[in-house]
Design a protein around this nucleic acid. Structure first.
Lengths: 314, 314
DNA sequence: TCAAAAGTGTTATCCTTACACCCATGT
DNA sequence: ACATGGGTGTAAGGATAACACTTTTGA
């Protein structure tokens, strides 16, 4: 076992290259909550994601983000996960300035406490109406399907038409294919490429646009969260200390954008021993009062793997 | 559907903050190949991962990485995935200079063609001997288990002892728990915290160290790759155009660090229609000649989800 | 009394795991 | 002949998806 070589040995390949140029670093946060069955996201005036420069007095990127968000929202940030880092040239809007942007996903609960001016929670599906399939009567997809199909059909050659056609079918669950809620990012990117979203000059797609590529980052966060929720107990970061199984299911449904099968959802939660009874019951709204549960923090370590697939209805 | 506000509206919250300071951006690449059943990684003198400054003439981070690696290795980079971005203060070794490092995982095939001086392929398990469990007689874990258990037992209070104990048990598959190959990063981090790796001043853990935190980045890559291989057909990026099912299984085993069940592995590959016969057979080494297969590129689009769990032996 | 939500029991089906076995070739 | 790797059939077990039904409350 040899000792490591001197610290700068990894510079060996830099050869005749100039000294590294300096650029600006920025943090972009997607802060998600679920309030009364609605997925919510923290925005600036409803049109941008909170972002700020990375100041080097912070210990790490994540520490900087935590400090910044908790200052903004006066609420502790439960789960934090890095999403993606980009430095695309076409993002350099401000006078040719090159920026590296590091995006994060954070989960909290919506605080009623006063936030900074301009900071507001918004319904996430305001930006992606087609992603909410909880209401079977929504039937929003057909509208988009029209535009997408004509985009696929307008491709110059047969090969490209086939590629676009299958891509659209897979992403949007057409031609008898199942809807896959995890493909939120692919769907947004396809709509962009098809020129249907306002950011790309289109008008066909519904949904509020955002500044720069913020809606794309939001789609990345949604896709990531929908994937994660299946095999990691992250929903609990969004729940109050005590909750009913119905509320828990509603939260998962809000994020997944689809209905779940009640009994199977409950069995899943039970057999994985994710929750335990508090002993209390709800001050119910309608119907029979429900028992209250709390999350068993002990399982956090255990549930590193384990698959908690979504028991979808129908 | 409102038009987006002017591009700088997201700066609203910056208020009295100073102009963003400039920092250096760096790319770090983990380039993986599998050669004759051995997982390989591209290094500089066996002790560092290839890295270089991010020059802003590139279109994007990924474009910069691709160009740089292909120049180094004279081999196209098949699959590329961003791993993680960090800017930890304690990494700023060089004179207080703050650096943002963006790490990438790339998959290729090992080229015999001459690479740059100092660039060499190394067996990945040289850095993590405990991660290779293909040989059941290896029995390397017990050595580490000793050090880990005493670390857990040395904790000041009972609570911390319990936490460390379960953490060690889960990560290293002790106390009757199953080994989980995806926990490669947790294992390295635990060994670090326990002070068993040379980077943390220890001597108990085997395996070659690397400069800075490069071994940690390598562990991140290994964990990510082991997870991905189960539900995305990325192994094929590491295979030659034609291969036998035995070679394919050997490649997966090399990355997973464990043996797979032959029949079940084959059934899985077949029923997912991942491959098709080329018609040829191998110039075999020993035993019956095997049929050659090629990857069906068509499934790339389809296999966005689909679970191809590893059919583990025993 | 009825709507609405909570909560329970049971069955069919598929996927995973595992066992046991035969085939073709070089040494 | 036998060691070595290629290749196949089939049964047991567990998780998942789906069915139908009872209970408890407020309006």
């Amino acid at each position: 076992m040899a000792l490591p070589p001197p610290p700068d040995s990894h510079l060996a390949d830099r050869g005749a290259e100039p000294a590294p140029e300096r650029i600006a670093a920025e943090l972009i946060a997607v802060i998600v909550a679920v309030t009364e069955g609605a997925p919510r996201v923290l925005t600036l005036a409803g049109a941008a994601l909170p972002s700020g420069p990375f100041a080097s007095e912070h210990r790490s990127l994540q520490a900087a983000l935590r400090a910044w968000v908790e200052h903004q929202t006066h609420h502790p940030l439960g789960y934090v996960e890095q999403l993606y880092t980009f430095a695309d040239r076409d993002r350099a809007a401000e006078a040719g300035e090159r920026v590296v942007s590091v995006s994060y996903l954070g989960l909290t609960r919506e605080a009623r406490a006063a936030a900074q001016a301009g900071v507001s929670w918004q319904d996430l599906y305001r930006y992606f109406p087609w992603e909410d399939r909880r209401d079977p009567h929504a039937a929003l997809a057909p509208v988009l399907a029209q535009g997408l199909r004509s985009w696929a059909g307008d491709a110059p050659d047969a090969m490209l038409r086939w590629e676009r056609g299958t891509r659209v079918a897979i992403a949007f669950g057409l031609d008898g294919r199942p809807w896959n809620e995890e493909l939120a990012l692919q769907r947004y990117e396809t709509l962009w490429e098809a020129g249907l979203v306002p950011e790309a000059g289109g008008t066909a797609a519904p949904g509020e646009p955002m500044v720069h590529d913020h809606r794309r980052i939001l789609a990345t966060a949604l896709a990531r969260l929908r994937g994660k929720i299946k095999y990691r107990p992250v929903v609990f970061e969004l729940m109050p200390p005590a909750f009913t199984l119905g509320q828990l299911q509603a939260a998962v449904e809000a994020l997944a954008g689809r209905r779940l099968h009640k009994q199977n959802f409950r069995r899943l939660v039970e057999q994985q021993e994710l929750v335990e009874e508090t002993g209390g019951v709800t001050a119910e709204t309608r119907g029979r009062p429900a028992r209250l549960f709390r999350f068993r923090r002990e399982v956090m370590a255990e549930r590193a793997v384990s698959g908690s697939k979504l028991p979808l209805v129908r």
